[in-house]
């Protein structure tokens, strides 16, 4: 029995070591770490987590300790012990004790619940509308007349109000470092507010199972100083760039190959609504909802066979020749 007890304690020790390791693992190099809160919403939620976390550790260590102690102390006893059937006082005490602990942690939880539920009055600087599609995100700025995809640009330190709806099934919008998630539901509108404390790129990902490429439905939030944001918005508002050379051949192919049926490029014939707006696709950092970098090589890979890159993608393999692909890549890259 002694051996088993040692093993038992070893297992407990292993757990403690594991907990230590997680603290080590929570470094900022983890792009979706909820510990590394970079905005007030995520910060408040993390603080609630710490409350309940320490309460949990306290309860677990206390009760677990008593359990282990009881087991060790009374193991392999001999004879018939005293037959105790209960103890009213004790039982009332340990009914009340958890109630008290719960009441204590409930306070910050409830306060935060109401605080994160709607943006601070009068502080909303930017309104964003997100429409989720299987498996990418359409991003609109109704006040700024901008439509883009898979990248939310926001000004640092300003409150952004995001309203969301879905074009097909239920998705969930989640940028862990900026705040918890909100589901995106067809025919309904939900909302969430975000604020980034510092410039940078924040990773997000769909958090509600939404079909075959659920794991491939990622996005980025890019926070930058107000001036840079304004410049970005200004550029986005304009029509697509004029192109020449190989890119011009790409522009023709965009029409000839039927891309225009699904994509919009403002200032051209293309006004499709099924896929992302490509007017300024060349300026995005990633394509295909965060799956690929927006490099000529990756773009070519995407155009050659989208469902191969992203299973189930609603952009078909258009059987383009190598030469057509490079012309289209040149065109799309030029659409800054």
């Amino acid at each position: 029995m002694r051996v088993s007890l040692a093993q038992f304690l070893a297992a407990v020790a292993a757990l403690v070591v594991l907990i230590g390791l997680v603290l080590a693992a929570c470094t900022p190099s983890h792009p979706q770490s909820t510990f590394d809160a970079s905005g007030p919403v995520a910060g408040m939620e993390r603080n609630v987590f710490y409350w309940i976390f320490w309460a949990a550790v306290f309860v677990f260590v206390t009760v677990g300790g008593v359990l282990v102690y009881t087991f060790v102390r009374f193991r392999n006893g001999e004879g018939i012990p005293r037959q105790v059937h209960g103890n009213r006082r004790l039982e009332i005490a340990w009914t009340l004790a958890p109630a008290v602990v719960l009441a204590v942690v409930a306070v910050p939880m409830l306060l935060t619940l109401f605080r994160v539920s709607s943006p601070p009055a009068g502080e909303v600087a930017v309104n964003v509308k997100v429409v989720a599609h299987q498996w990418w995100w359409e991003v609109q700025y109704p006040d700024l007349d901008i439509v883009t995809a898979n990248e939310l640009h926001i000004p640092v330190g300003r409150v952004v109000d995001v309203t969301l709806t879905s074009n097909d099934v239920i998705h969930s919008f989640w940028v862990p470092k900026l705040g918890g998630k909100i589901d995106v539901i067809p025919t309904r509108t939900t909302s969430i507010w975000l604020k980034a404390d510092k410039s940078g790129t924040y990773f997000g990902q769909c958090a509600e199972f939404c079909g075959i490429s659920h794991g491939n439905m990622r996005f980025r939030v890019i926070a930058k100083p107000q001036a840079e944001f304004d410049a970005w918005a200004e550029a986005q508002r304009g029509p697509a760039a004029q192109v020449t050379g190989e890119a011009e051949r790409g522009a023709q192919l965009f029409v000839a190959k039927g891309c225009l049926a699904c994509h919009t490029i403002r200032g051209t014939l293309a006004m499709g609504k099924i896929g992302p707006d490509l007017t300024h696709v060349g300026g995005r950092t990633t394509i295909a909802a965060g799956l690929l970098d927006n490099t000529p090589e990756d773009l070519a890979r995407w155009l050659r066979d989208p469902p191969e890159v992203k299973p189930g993608a609603n952009m078909p393999n258009l059987k383009l020749s190598g030469e057509e692909v490079s012309a289209l890549v040149a065109y799309l890259q030029a659409l800054k």
Binding site: M44, F49, G64, L102, V105, M109, L113, S172, G180, K181
Partner: peptide, 24 residues
């Protein structure tokens, strides 16, 4: 022992405002 851990993480989930991060 282990059920207690599951129960406690369940209480953590009941904390709606931090569960926004943990849900799913």
């Amino acid at each position: 022992f282990t059920f207690m851990m599951g129960g406690i993480s369940g209480v953590m989930h009941s904390m709606a405002s931090s569960d926004y991060q943990q849900q799913d």
